[in-house]
């Protein structure tokens, strides 16, 4: 005889606490996913179909770099560059090798960014996508190097660059060499810009620290996903510094839009067509002038 109570997980093991948890049998999380914002359970197939955007409240779940590429570029058009480049422990920081190993396992990637060429609705572009699953998208030497090479390649081949950012900032384990990546990437962005080429940044949740204070804020056009947290200092650091609570929605994409620091908040479902439209508007003809 089946034991009915086996269907109910003990309360403290349930992810979905509160009323929902008390009144409903346990449902495997592969089937249902709880939205961290509206707390509703969403059928995971519905969530996937909706580009991992909550069907109830519109919360944009975080995507891995590969998922992001898949949603953004034309099928089979992504040709990855520098895929095998890997970080080493250059300043001998304690346990960094272990951290890197774990990050590789948990993310399935070699670094916190993937770069490559692609087409978006037929338009050629260089794309760099950061990955929060690799050490919270922190910027190490290889992260900076891959982004720099992507820009240098784009400058040489006169292509637009699109960067999706997600980052906790500099990578402490690489010390000053991490900080130098801010200057290095900014230099590559500047040469690309001086060549008259288009750079679009798409800020995703969360983008902070050294990435915000370098290439994330250097786009000709800066877009963001709804509700993304964007800032220089993280909210906790600010609260500790000023010893007061921050207002709600402080450092949200909408807040930055209001303050004049980003151009538009774009829904995930509209991102690909928006990028394609912006690239088209900046397309060069054979003489190097605008195509229109």
């Amino acid at each position: 005889m089946p034991d009915f109570f086996n269907f109910l997980k003990p309360k403290n093991e349930l992810e979905n606490q509160g009323e929902f948890a008390e009144n409903h049998p346990y449902i495997p999380e592969e089937l249902w996913i709880k939205c961290p914002v509206c707390k509703n359970a969403i059928l995971s197939s519905d969530l996937m179909e909706n580009h991992k955007v909550c069907t109830k409240c519109g919360y944009h779940f975080r995507l891995s770099a590969r998922q992001r590429v898949e949603l953004t570029v034309d099928e089979n058009s992504f040709a990855e560059m520098d895929a095998d480049m890997m970080s080493t422990n250059k300043i001998g920081f304690p346990d960094y090798e272990k951290k890197l190993r774990n990050a590789k396992i948990s993310s399935g990637e070699n670094e916190s960014v993937i770069t490559g060429s692609c087409t978006i609705c037929g338009e050629k572009a260089i794309i760099a996508v950061m990955n929060s699953k690799f050490m919270m998208g922190s910027m190490g030497t290889v992260t900076g190097e891959k982004i720099t090479r992507a820009f240098e390649y784009a400058t040489e081949n006169r292509l637009p660059v699109i960067v999706f950012t997600v980052s906790g900032g500099a990578r402490m384990q690489e010390g000053i060499l991490s900080l130098m990546q801010m200057a290095k990437t900014s230099g590559a962005v500047k040469l690309h810009s001086d060549a008259g080429l288009l750079y679009i940044t798409v800020l995703t949740d969360p983008t902070t620290g050294g990435v915000t204070a370098s290439f994330a804020m250097e786009g000709d056009i800066i877009l963001s996903e709804p509700k993304a947290l964007i800032g220089f200092a993280g909210p906790r650091v600010i609260e500790q510094t000023i010893r007061q609570k921050l207002p709600k929605d402080f450092q949200s994409a909408e807040f930055l839009l209001d303050k004049g620091f980003i151009d538009a908040v774009v829904q995930r479902k509209d991102m690909k067509s928006t990028l394609a439209q912006l690239i088209r508007l900046h397309k060069e003809n054979d003489e190097g002038g605008a195509a229109l």
């Binding site: 900014s186 915000t212 804020m217 250097e218 220089f232």
Partner: peptide
Amino acid sequence: GQGQAIAE
């Protein structure tokens, strides 16, 4: 825009 100012 602390981040933007530094980036620039």
